[in-house]
């Protein structure tokens, strides 16, 4: 067994140094995708003409595109078209100074919004129609009914699924390494470049991801405990 603990340790430290990159990417993507996904799902629920059909087709097809393919594809499109588009928009930043993580954000937000929108669509099915009517009956318009009555009741329904989505997103963020973004995995490998032994680097990376994942599960558990208090039924007299 040739596993060097010292190079493992170096890799671990290096991986942790880049953990914030991954966490930031994951967190921002998740929040933005929650908003976009909810908007898409709501548009589809209310069957708003034209938009719902477009989204229906787009989401269904887009969910068939793997993240890795999307990353490589958008990256090559970006690199090919950048010069011409920059000219048109009078952007003076040269492509070498554009952080490729922007493409990562784009890819991940697009993909996660689609899967979140599917979860939210499912959650709509779990809400009793009378909740909408009750909101309307006291004069709350559509927007207020959605934000004050419907969405809050979706939270306990969505939590387990969202937790899974978030962990999936964490793992998908790993793929931005394919377009030269230094994140946890590539960060862990930086020391290995000197020693030719990659195993320690990958194991260190796995450990850091695992820890963050456990952190997400803890947050999810606490969130589930604190929501949906109103769902628990007490024997009535």
């Amino acid at each position: 067994m040739s596993f060097s603990v010292s190079s493992f340790w170096e890799s671990l430290v290096s991986a942790l140094a880049y953990a914030p990159v991954t966490i930031k990417l994951t967190a921002i993507t998740f929040v933005v995708s929650l908003v976009l996904g909810t908007i898409i799902a709501t548009i589809r629920y209310y069957k708003i003409p034209v938009l719902s059909q477009i989204f229906a087709v787009f989401v269904t097809a887009y969910l068939g595109l793997p993240t890795m393919v999307a990353i490589l594809l958008y990256n090559i499109i970006f690199m090919t078209c950048y010069a011409d588009v920059a000219n048109v928009l009078h952007i003076t930043v040269p492509i070498s100074e554009v952080d490729p993580i922007i493409i990562g954000y784009f890819v991940l937000i697009l993909g996660t919004s689609c899967s979140v929108s599917e979860s939210v669509r499912g959650a709509f099915r779990g809400i009793d129609k009378v909740q909408f009517e009750a909101g309307y009956s006291i004069g709350l318009g559509k927007f207020k009914t959605l934000t004050r009555v419907i969405y809050p009741q979706m939270v306990p329904i969505l939590l387990p699924g969202l937790q899974n989505s978030l962990i999936g997103l964490l793992k998908a963020s790993n793929l931005v390494s394919a377009i030269s973004v230094i994140e946890i995995m590539t960060g862990a490998l930086l020391p290995s470049l000197l020693y030719y032994s990659y195993l320690e680097g990958y194991v260190a990376a796995a450990l850091v991801y695992w820890l963050i994942g456990i952190g997400i599960e803890v947050i999810g558990y606490l969130a589930e405990k604190n929501s949906g208090k109103y769902l628990k039924q007490v024997a009535t007299g």
């Binding site: 067994m1 040739s2 596993f3 962990i167 964490l170 793992k171 998908a172 790993n174 793929l175 390494s177 995995m185 990659y198 195993l199 990958y202 194991v203 990376a205 796995a206 991801y209 695992w210 994942g213 456990i214």
Partner: peptide
């Protein structure tokens, strides 16, 4: 199960690729 679900597949593949021959 926690490990498989909490770590990226690419990292797992690399660990398998480099680790199994070593171990």
């Amino acid at each position: 199960i926690s490990f498989m679900r909490g770590t990226p597949l690419l990292v797992q593949m690399m660990i398998a690729f480099y680790g199994i021959p070593i171990v």
